[in-house]
Design a protein around this nucleic acid. Structure first.
Lengths: 235, 235
DNA sequence: GGCAAGCAAATTGTATCCAATTGACGGAAA
DNA sequence: TTTCCGTCAATTGGATACAATTTGCTTGCC
């Protein structure tokens, strides 16, 4: 589940490699939001031509991790607070569905895999580094993949990745202590087939994650701020 | 809402144009599932180079409307019955969320726009042509866009389009008579703020749509069919 | 008659090349 | 001093050329 079997693993080798590398770099905050991604710089770095980089960037844009401006190039996305709330809304909806499905039909080895993952999360517990961020996200991705619904899994993957990006932008702290514990609780509830409780925990969990990002208070989009100052200038 | 303002309308003009054109052609069944899409054939047809076509195809692949095989090229997707069920599952989940949101916060002009759309659906009622298929889908897309949640709207758009493709593969009939009527009922329920009823209708509606496609009965993958005919030939 | 190997055609994968657009810098005029 | 305009460097948008891979067919052998 880690990261590779992205449905296009064995094809488009180079494009895929660059795509995965860039995505990882973004999620782990090596590439920070707003940072430019010039095609030939990236290309030289990886020893491939712009063509490859370009294709990778197109994909990343589709995933919402990168935005491109015409004739300006690609930038690591900087989700607005509004966008962040929308993403969290969708994520909650999707993950609740995941829980619902898993409580109905849980694959045999599911709990083992989930618990194994939580253990690996615990080994990096305390360190608030990029690795723990990635692992925390991958727990949810694993959960989605266990449903067997690949479409659902793909969407959950996308939203989770974007949430990682959001947290790197807005979160005050990444203290994942409680998170790991809640992951365990979710496993418990699912094993018991208690959908209601599992959804409750998940809601609380996502709420906590979203809460750690200060999404609501400030008005965020430049235009929403400036719109209060009159529009007369723009002819 | 019709089709253009796809968040990247004014940029990448050529790529976008080809992308939209191909998508439309697929949804309206001008390009049938399984049909090949050679890059230079398409390119010549539209008077652009392979570069453009390829970018468009990458996008379409991300949307699940085409698949590409390494060194073989791109084909219009032929969703398996299993995949189709997964898509319907996700669609139901997402559209229920749409309803829930709309019952809470309904934009002022929403009902007008929805009813206008239903009226335009009624004008082509009876004719089971590609246009009515597209319009039926666009009702749901409009619904999603009215939530104001762009992420949600994007996912709904994707699933709805894929459902159109699925229907063109598996549906016995496209009789959209009942569908249009149910669209009206959904508007009614939303206007009344009755989320439970609206969701009920939507569930029934999607169930009917999914039911019109004979998804469950036959095993569909080639290998699962042929496996019953003995495997002795293949060494 | 069937099977395997090898060759040729077609198509994609990748790199390089030219053109067009953008943003920045600097100079000139008000 | 400030604003405006023109030129220039940098970077992407798009097209073409070459390499690698696959496929289907032909040929020859069993």
């Amino acid at each position: 589940m880690t990261s590779e079997p992205t449905m296009s693993d064995s094809k488009n080798t180079l494009t895929n490699a660059v795509h995965d590398l860039l995505r990882r770099a973004i999620i782990e905050q090596a590439l920070k939001p707003g940072m430019r991604l010039p095609e030939d710089t990236v290309g030289e770095q990886f020893g491939v031509s712009r063509t490859i980089v370009r294709h990778a960037l197109v994909r990343l844009e589709n995933e919402g991790l990168v935005i491109t401006r015409r004739n300006r190039g690609a930038f690591v996305a900087e989700p607005s607070r509004e966008e962040a709330q929308q993403i969290f809304e969708v994520r909650r909806c999707l993950e609740n569905e995941v829980i619902r499905i898993l409580c109905e039909r849980l694959p045999s080895n599911a709990c083992d895999r989930l618990e194994a993952h939580v253990r690996s999360e615990e080994t990096v517990k305390g360190k608030d580094g990029p690795v723990s961020i990635r692992l925390a996200g991958e727990f949810h991705i694993l959960l989605a993949e266990l449903t067997g619904n690949e479409v659902l899994a793909r969407y959950v993957t996308e939203v989770v990745l974007r949430c990682s990006l959001i947290m790197s932008l807005y979160a005050r702290t990444h203290s994942s202590d409680c998170a790991v514990d809640e992951h365990s609780q979710i496993i418990e509830a699912i094993r018991a087939g208690d959908a209601a409780r599992a959804i409750g925990i998940m809601d609380h969990h996502l709420g906590a994650v979203a809460g750690r990002a200060e999404l609501s208070p400030r008005a965020d989009s430049i235009q929403s701020i400036l719109s209060r100052y009159g529009k007369e200038l723009a002819q």
